[in-house]
Amino acid sequence: MNTVDTHMTQPTAASASQRGFWTRIVLVTLACAVAYATPGLLPNLFYVHIANLTLVSGIFALSLWIIYCVGQLSLGHAAFAGLGAYASALLSLRLGVPPFVSLLIAGIGTATVAALLGAVILRLRGVYFVLVTFLFGQMFTLMVLNWQSLTNGANGLISIPPITILGLSFGPRPVFFYFAFVVFLLVLLFTWALSRSTFGRAFDSIEQNIDLAESCGIDTSKYQIIAFTIGSGIAGVGGAMIAHYIRYISPDTFTFHNSVAYITMLVVGGRSLFWGAVVGAAFLTPLPEFLRDFAGLQHIIYGAIMILVLRLLPGGLISLPATLRRIGGGK
C-alpha cells in the first residue's frame, strides 16, 4: 500500500501501527473529498453514469476477490448479483418494503442462499467448483426466465423504485454516485479489514496451500463457506443497487457474461491484493466507452488489451509500478 511520510522520528512498533492507522484515515478522507467533488467535475451525466457503474463493478469484483482468496473461483457470481437484484426489486415492488431496507434484506437473503449452497458445493475443488458455479448460474437464468408468476419472466421487472433514505431519493445519477461510493468504500474497508484479521490470515494460508492449511488444523471448509457467504452476500447487495438504479431488471441483466467480466476484472487488475479487483473494475468498466469511436474495432481492441495486459503484466495492472521499476533498474 502507499505510505505517506508523516515526518515522525524513529517510530516504535506501536507508533508504526498507529501511523498506519492515521495514514488510512487520511487516505479515506482524501478519497471522500475527491468523491465529493467528482459528480460536479465530470463533464456530463453520462460520465456520472459510467462512474456509477464502475463503482458497482468495483463492489462485484471485491466480493469475488473475497471468494477467490480462499482458493475458489466462482463462475456464477452474476447469479448472486441477480438473486439480490430480484429479491430487493420484488420486496419493494410487491410488498412495499422501502428500497433501502429491501437492499439489506436482499443482501442477507443472498448470503443465506450462498451459505446453504456453499455447504453442498464447496466440497468440490479447483476447476470442478468453477464448473458447478457455472451451472448454478445457468440454472438461475432459466429459473428467472420461467418462474413467470414471480419474476415476470423475460419481460423483466419495470418501475423499480429508487433507493430512498429519510426522504432523500438516490435515483438521480449524481446522488446515486454518493450512495454507490459509500457502499463501495464500506466494502473496500471491510475487505481490507478482513484480509488483515485472523480470518484473512487463515484465508491466505488456504489460498497458498489448502492441504498444508488443513494439516495445520485450519478448518478450511468453514472458512470457505464463510468467504463464499460474505462474497455472495455483497454481490447480492451490488445487484440490488443496480436494480434500484436502472429501475429495470430482466434475466438478461445478470448473465454468464457478467460473471466472466468480474473474473476478468480480477485477473486484469491483479489477484494478489484486494485492490487489484478495484483497479480491474476501474480499468475495464469504462474501457468499452473509450473505444466507442473505433466503431467495429471496439471489441477487438478490448480483447487485445486484455491479452496484452496478461501477457506483459502477469501480475495484473497493480504490478505495473514494480514492473516499470524492474525495467528501469535493468537499464
Binding site: P43, N44, L45, F46, Y47, H49, I50, L53, G156, I246, Y248, S250, D252, T253, E289, R292
Partner: peptide, 16 residues
Amino acid sequence: YNPNDAVTAVNRLVFE
C-alpha cells in the same frame, strides 16, 4: 439486443 448495453448507449446519447 441487451438491456444493459441499451441503457449505457442511451445514457451516452442523451448526455454526451
